[in-house]
C-alpha cells in the first residue's frame, strides 16, 4: 500500500529514490470563493510542480465541467476533471466532478462514488481527505481554503492523525472564513497562511524530504 508508493518516487528528478518520507500528494478542499482562490493558488504553481493535486470544490449537482477547463487554461499545471480509475500522476490537478465524491484507492488511482451527501456536500472534502489520508499517510499535504461551511475539518483531523501536514488559509484572508476557522478549531494545523504565500510554501514542502518530525510508529499514526 503506502509503502509501495514510496518505492515509486513521485518527486522530480532531483529527489533520491530513498526519500522514504517525501510527500506524495496534495489535497485541497474549498467552497465559497473557491473559483477565485483556486485560480490564484494554481496560477502560482509552475508546470514542474512534482506532486499530484486532488481538489474538492463544492459545486452544484448539475454544474458542467467548466471549472476544470477554466483552470486548465489559466494555470501552468494540467487540470482535469477526475474520471473513475484515473491513475494519479505527478504534476496533474484532479478536480472532483459535480455530484460525485472523489476517493483515493490504495493502488494509486482515483475512484468516484454516488454515496449520500457527507457533511452536507457531494463531493465532500471530508471524504477525499479521509480516503487520501488512509493511502498516503505521512506523505499527504491537506489544505483547507475559503468556504462557508464545516466540511473538511474532520478530514484534516484525519490527515493529521495519520501523520500528514495540514495547511489552512488564514481566515482573515479568506472570502468566507468558516471553513478555515472550523479546520483550525478541529486539529493542530501546521501552517496558517494567506493565499499569496501558499504556492511558495507548497513548492518548498514538495522539494524537501523528511520534512515531518517522525516517530518510530510509522506513517499511519
Amino acid at each position: 500500500m503506502a509503502e509501495t508508493l514510496d518505492a515509486n518516487p513521485r518527486q522530480d528528478g532531483t529527489a533520491p529514490k530513498t526519500a522514504a518520507r517525501s510527500f506524495e500528494a496534495v489535497t485541497i478542499g474549498v467552497s465559497t470563493g473557491g473559483v477565485h482562490a483556486l485560480q490564484k493558488l494554481l496560477g502560482q504553481l509552475p508546470a514542474t510542480f512534482p506532486l499530484p493535486i486532488l481538489i474538492v470544490q463544492h459545486i452544484s449537482a448539475d454544474a458542467d465541467s467548466g471549472l476544470a477547463k477554466l483552470l486548465d487554461e489559466r494555470c501552468p499545471l494540467r487540470v482535469k476533471e477526475a474520471d473513475e480509475q484515473d491513475e494519479i500522476r505527478p504534476g496533474t490537478v484532479y478536480l472532483a466532478p459535480p455530484n460525485y465524491h472523489l476517493l483515493v484507492e490504495r493502488e494509486g488511482f482515483l475512484s468516484l462514488s454516488a454515496d449520500p451527501y457527507v457533511s452536507f456536500a457531494r463531493p465532500s472534502v471530508d471524504v477525499l481527505f479521509e480516503s487520501a489520508a488512509a493511502v498516503f499517510g505521512r506523505g499527504l499535504i491537506g489544505i483547507v481554503l475559503t468556504g462557508a461551511n464545516f466540511d473538511g475539518s474532520q478530514g484534516l483531523k484525519t490527515i493529521k492523525r495519520k501523520g500528514g501536514v495540514a495547511i489552512v488559509q488564514d481566515p482573515a484572508d479568506a472570502e468566507a472564513r468558516q471553513m478555515p476557522q472550523a479546520a483550525i478549531a478541529a486539529t493542530g494545523v501546521d501552517y496558517v497562511v494567506a493565499l499569496d504565500g501558499m504556492a511558495a510554501l507548497l513548492q518548498k514542502l514538495a522539494a524537501r524530504r523528511n520534512t515531518i518530525p517522525h516517530d518510530e510508529k510509522g506513517r499511519d499514526d
Binding site: E105, S111, S113, D115, E130
Partner: peptide
C-alpha cells in the same frame, strides 16, 4: 469492490 468507498461504508 473498490476499497476506499466500501471501507468508508
Amino acid at each position: 469492490y473498490a476499497d476506499a468507498s466500501i471501507k468508508r461504508r
